[in-house]
Design a protein around this nucleic acid. Sequence first.
DNA 1: TATTGTTATACTCTATAACTATA
DNA 2: TATAGTTATAGAGTATAACAATA
Lengths: 170, 170
Amino acid sequence: MTVSKTPALDLTKTVRAAARDDTGEGDVLKLGELSELLGYSLKRAQLKVFDDFIHCVAPLQLTPAQFSVLLLLERNPGRNQTEIASTLGILRPNFVSMLDGLESRELCVRMRSTNDRRSHVLMLTDKGHAILARAKKLVATKHETRLNELLGPEKREALLGMLAKIAREF
Amino acid sequence: MTVSKTPALDLTKTVRAAARDDTGEGDVLKLGELSELLGYSLKRAQLKVFDDFIHCVAPLQLTPAQFSVLLLLERNPGRNQTEIASTLGILRPNFVSMLDGLESRELCVRMRSTNDRRSHVLMLTDKGHAILARAKKLVATKHETRLNELLGPEKREALLGMLAKIAREF
DNA sequence: TATTGTTATACTCTATAACTATA
DNA sequence: TATAGTTATAGAGTATAACAATA
């Protein structure tokens, strides 16, 4: 479609905007009750936020899930796979290939526990600490900054609080 | 673990709660910066909300995605597959099997458009309208009610607004 | 007997290319 | 030549069962 650039003559947008709010005969579909459904907005927002995260951290090639594992290992060194995985809601079988990926990039290591030789003690390597530090900086300066610009710090904090409450108590 | 029911003697919880906030030597892992990462809480909250939705609508066997399609068909009858799918962020190839499922349950129908015989006009059947009405009632009385109890109506509305803004503008 | 890490496997989602019939 | 619906297919993510080593 070629849109006229002459302001006074192009009524297309006005007509369609009216139609959108009135009869629904315009180009744009009406979401209706969908926009009041929390799960719908939650999902769409989550996809957007993950997309932006991946884009911001692209130079380091870390997914949100990988970033969360590195953060947790930094804060909780010496834990085993079951503990790290379950804290993140990852099933133990699925955590194996994930760790394989991080370990093959030398970001973390598995070591047989001396106390319980069934379990693997997990730790970040120096490279893992370094990459995580760079990732944190990218997230803070690019990702979270954009969110603050969109919502403002107080609303962003309020949003975080409500989401955490839902994740905890719902 | 067997927890003592004698209040005065069971200090386990108190000791561990202290450890959690101090040294991180307790049972519970410290989330650290993870709890400040919006994407993380967003994802965990989304999973909880979808789980509850599925549970609430279980008698009708509708997923959140199927419910969103039915809602959109009700509000926008006579649209084609490309329009419905793209509005919901579903890729056209993936929408085919989804419609197959709904159509085989006789909740909606595809009809060759008389204007453009390439496209399928989509409409809810009577059964589709009926199931959707029942689903809406379950969502309103069980799902959304629980959310209102958790957050309160004003906060729930504020949350919805912020999520919609992120989905739109981020 | 129970638990840790692991393999195998299956099912859902998502993503891309290419075909057909129409335009 | 382009578009609508479709097929095939491949890759993530997620889920369960079962095995070896160890407790």
